[in-house]
Design a protein around this nucleic acid. Structure first.
Lengths: 248, 248
DNA sequence: GCCGATTTGTCCGTATGTATC
DNA sequence: CGATACATACGGACAAATCGG
């Protein structure tokens, strides 16, 4: 836990908004009021608010106040779509949040070197030593997601099939002290391949949502490249873009 | 133009990074150095850097420096995928950026009121007066994207099919002074409907990328709800998530 | 339409903590 | 250990937008 004052204020305000203390379309107390209430400077309040703006909870209006844009319906939208690809959340965190039964099957595990094709796609240097892991995620007994991951061995010296079957991120962080700091993702839609049909329950879909992911550790080293292929019904991505506060 | 000092610095650094003055994996000059160079305080430099961190251009490493994570390859990835759904960019801005020929066909235009179903999906109040516009985007002669939009009439009092055929956003901003400040998006993958097959060239795909979008104006009023349906080959979404600098 | 109070936006200078080397 | 660099926090100043009288 970072334990920063602006983080505490951010969480406090976020909770109040989610609980409806500050309802949709209302204005939260002014920055000066909040600063007095939290016993901090206005700048610190503003940092907390900046976080809420980024995540789409509120919007600041100059001369007026800070308006709540969050609605409870946003969190669990209509329909029965179970998974939301949030900001930097692992499969296990996700599964835990939705209290579903889940399982990971490691269908491939090897050590190899990045060839030209992989290097081009992943950003690794050609010839870099990597682990190659392929996993199938099973949710409520249904095989719905397939991950193909490559981990740079210079950052992740030891990795085992057993660790891959649990949460790799938890293992990396706990055992190796490796943390994902930045993550670049690209979402596309692709035709299902023979491998998809072999490993996943595609039902009557012939496409998947494909998320390619480049992860950087705290030293800014690209150490993971993962391509995740999602059953369409189990894919959902939410995002907020804001113009203010952003340099344009 | 916002004309803020930190925005200028942000753009300056961004340009230098894109041009390779600060190459991938290098460290940009320290905050103090930059502050001296730009003739501003360190706080202002930090605001500019915060923007570059959010957008994935750099990553800050405490005690070490600020590392460049941007690579030219990120901008135009391998393959021939033409469209990237960036941050708050209209179809026309996108098309202009890629210098493709494009066209918009308005296939439906009406005024109506939000019923319960639309209200639930969009967030509009039941009974709200709205424009209902359906448009097909044609790129290089191929119908690839279909937009179904609803605009709140209390915010957008006048809208015409002619304006809808041009850029609606340009019209809103220039003629009505309405600006999108916050935009919430959700990406999913859905089966192609009969309407999709009627209007779009689906080739041998039976799914589309679906982006639902809620747009708020500068007063924090939800005034637009749009569902965009993309031909899979012409959909791509890029995103960067970062842990540092974010309250967690 | 003007004025003044309120509120957010930008910017500055400074101090202290923490991590890296 | 000291120097460097980023992280957090404070306090103050002025600008710009909004709103009510």
């Amino acid at each position: 836990m970072p334990r920063s004052k602006f983080g505490d204020i951010y969480n406090d305000l976020k909770t109040k908004i989610e609980q409806g203390d500050y309802p949709y379309q209302s204005l939260v107390p002014s920055e000066n009021t909040l600063a007095a209430a939290f016993g901090c400077s206005r700048n610190t309040v503003r940092r907390a608010l900046a976080g809420l703006i980024e995540t789409g909870y509120v919007q600041a209006i100059q001369g007026k106040g800070v308006r709540v844009l969050y609605r409870a319906a946003d969190r669990r939208p209509a329909g029965k779509v179970p998974f939301t690809l949030g900001r930097l959340e692992s499969f296990y965190e996700m599964a835990a949040r939705f209290r579903t039964s889940y399982q990971t099957r490691v269908v491939h595990f090897s050590m190899t070197q990045a060839d030209a094709v992989l290097a081009q796609a992943s950003g690794f240097a050609v010839g870099a030593d990597v682990y190659h892991v392929q996993r199938v995620r099973v949710v409520d007994g249904r095989a719905l997601i397939m991950d193909e991951s490559y981990f740079l061995r210079s950052v992740v010296p030891t990795l085992t099939p057993e660790a891959a079957e649990q949460s790799i991120y938890a293992y990396l962080e706990r055992e190796l002290g490796v943390q994902i700091t930045t993550s670049k993702r690209t979402i596309t839609v692709e035709h299902a391949t023979a491998a998809d049909r072999l490993y996943l329950e595609m039902d009557d879909y012939d496409c998947l949502a494909v998320v390619t992911n480049q992860a950087f550790n705290s030293d800014g080293i690209l150490f993971e490249y993962t391509v995740s292929r999602y059953h369409p019904e189990y894919f959902r991505f939410q995002d907020t873009a804001c113009r203010s506060r952003k340099p344009r």
